[in-house]
């Protein structure tokens, strides 16, 4: 399954169906059920520098405290200094998106692969607080590339990532 297509499909269906926020993972559109675990696979590159995973409120409330982000492939021929920023994003029509940063990881060395532990419990709670009585707000868990250099993200840069739930 192509994760990009499936997630884009989810977002599209949710957006046009007027259901508001979508469930994380593989829940059917329209059903705000929490997934048993966080398992997503995606790629980040200079051309596609962000991955946005929609999250329902019910999902936010039942997220595990941590997630493991696995970088299984890190093609960085220019050794550009990059990081992967993880954050929640609250989106509501006619309002500027709100970002709740979680953590930004960097690579040492530049081509590093491996597993990274990230705690998101407090940030998820903060998002829930901010949502309050905003039924039309959507929440996304966002993974985005960051460049530490002026030249920005080179086209050849490509990372394969996947997530799994922590505890």
């Amino acid at each position: 399954m192509n994760p990009h297509r499936s997630f884009a499909h989810f977002v599209f269906i949710c957006a046009v169906s007027g259901l508001g926020s979508c469930a994380c993972g593989h829940a059917q559109p329209g059903k705000e059920t929490a997934p048993p675990e966080l398992k997503w696979a995606f790629e980040l590159s200079g051309e596609s520098p962000a991955f946005r995973q929609p999250c329902a409120r019910a999902t936010l409330a039942t997220l595990p405290a941590t997630l493991i982000l696995t970088v299984s492939e890190n093609r960085n021929p220019d050794q550009t200094r990059v990081g992967v920023a993880v954050s929640f994003e609250i989106v509501e029509e006619n309002l500027a998106p709100e970002s709740v940063p979680i953590h930004t990881l960097y690579f040492f060395p530049a081509e590093q692969t491996g597993n990274f532990g990230i705690r998101l419990k407090e940030q998820a709670e903060e998002v829930l607080r901010r949502l309050g009585s905003r039924p039309n707000a959507q929440v996304f868990l966002v993974f985005s590339l960051r460049s530490l250099e002026e030249k920005g993200l080179p086209e050849a840069l490509r990372l394969k990532l996947q997530t799994s739930g922590g505890k």
Partner: peptide
């Protein structure tokens, strides 16, 4: 896996 002090 790496902790956040290391990865950050």
């Amino acid at each position: 896996f790496s902790g956040q002090l290391e990865s950050g």
